[in-house]
Structure formats: C-alpha cells, structure tokens
C-alpha cells in the first residue's frame, strides 16, 4: 500500500528537488549541530522531521509506542552522527531518510525474530570515510611537480618553502594557528566545502 503510493508519486515526478523543502536551511542546521552542538538548530531539525517520521513509522508498525521509538532512535542518531553528513553527497532529507530507514529496518528484524544484529548500516552505509573529499584537502602540494625541486633543498629551508613558498598553509599550520586539533580542521574544511557546493549549486561541479 505504502510502496504503491510512493512509486506512483515518484514515477510521476520529473524533478528531483521540489521547492517545498528549504534544503540549504536543513543543511545549515545539520552543520550547526555537527560543529557547535547547537541545541537550537537541533530543535529546528526535530520539529521538521519528528512528526513526519512518527507518521511514516506508524504506517509501518501500526503501533504508537514503536513509532515513537523510531523517532527517538532516528533523531538521536541525527544528533550523534550529524558530522557524518556530507552535503556534497546529497540532500539533508536523503541523509535523514537513510538514518530513519536503517533504524526501522533493524527494529523490524528485532520485532520479527528477536534478532539484534543491526545489519542496516552495512547494507546502506551512512558515511564511510569519503575518499573523494579527502583528496580535495589532501596536502595537494605534495603532488606538485615543483616539489621535486624543493626536495633538493636543505631540510630547514624545505620547512619554510613548503609552508609559505606557495603562499599557502599546510593543514598542520592552520591547526596550530587556530589552536585546534587537526581533525577539527579537516572536518571544518569539509563542512565549508559542503556549504559552498550548496551555495554555488551545480554550476561549479
């Protein structure tokens, strides 16, 4: 019944995105949760998603307690995993849908056969360490052919040259300058890129 409804609608639609959902706003809230553990942003996300998740889950389980459990579990994963969301890979709705579908799938297995094996994240991975984005921020100067010249320089000079010769800091230098862990710098750079892609749209892909 639900499946049919969904398939009718999806096949009738020609565009992927409708303007009924404010996607950049959702991305922004997820970013705020990820970077500053912003409770206000989370409350906004919760108000947008929770009632809808509750209805969808009620449709699947026909049981109010279990529907609430899906809401609780999904939204708590959103809170804990927001930093794994990557706007360059898809919409916030797609990400939250995946979280919800995975929670529902594991819960159904549990109810049906008392199996607590949580297989969903292996079948539908939420976020693996993404390789493509990582590459963007790798110390790409390493790849530059000019480094072969730099490599012939004495060690002390190499340090200076690698840092500012190209007028560019390394991620380590940026981390030291901002007094932040390298991991935080990397995730901020990734978030910044994700936001940028939302802002510039697809024209610059």
């Amino acid at each position: 019944m639900q499946t049919n409804l969904l398939s009718n609608v999806t096949s009738a639609k020609s565009t992927l995105m409708t303007d009924k959902i404010d996607h950049p706003q959702l991305c922004q809230w997820l970013d705020d949760v990820a970077t500053t553990r912003d409770k206000k942003a989370f409350t906004q996300l919760f108000q947008f998603f929770a009632p809808k998740i509750q209805r969808i889950a009620y449709g699947k389980f026909q049981n109010e307690t279990q529907a609430c459990e899906v809401v609780q579990e999904t939204m708590s994963n959103v809170w804990r995993k927001a930093h794994l969301f990557d706007a360059s890979k898809g919409a916030a709705t797609t990400w939250v849908y995946t979280v919800m579908r995975n929670v529902t799938f594991d819960m159904l297995r549990k109810i049906k056969g008392n199996r607590e094996d949580n297989l969903s994240d292996d079948i539908w991975p939420l976020a693996e360490q993404s390789i493509s984005n990582e590459e963007c921020f790798d110390d790409h100067l390493e790849n530059s052919q000019l480094l072969s010249v730099i490599d012939t320089l004495p060690e002390a000079q190499k340090q200076i040259v690698k840092g500012f010769y190209f007028m560019e800091m390394s991620q380590e230098q940026l981390a030291t300058h901002l007094n932040l862990p390298l991991g935080t710098i990397k995730s901020r750079l990734r978030l910044a890129l994700a936001k940028l892609k939302v802002q510039l749209g697809d024209n610059n892909d």
Partner: peptide, 27 residues
C-alpha cells in the same frame, strides 16, 4: 587556506564574493 586549486578556482570563475566570504568564515 589549504584547499585544492579546484575549489580556489571556483572563486574566480563564479565571481561570487558572498560565497567566498562564507567559505572562509565557515572554517
């Protein structure tokens, strides 16, 4: 900033100062 030239390039081709400022700020 240590980001790839591809991304830096986009701040020239797009001519969008707001996007550039937003990008730096978000870091």
């Amino acid at each position: 900033l240590p980001v790839s030239s591809e991304i830096k390039n986009s701040f020239v081709t797009s001519q969008n100062y707001e996007a550039a400022r937003g990008f730096v700020e978000s870091i």
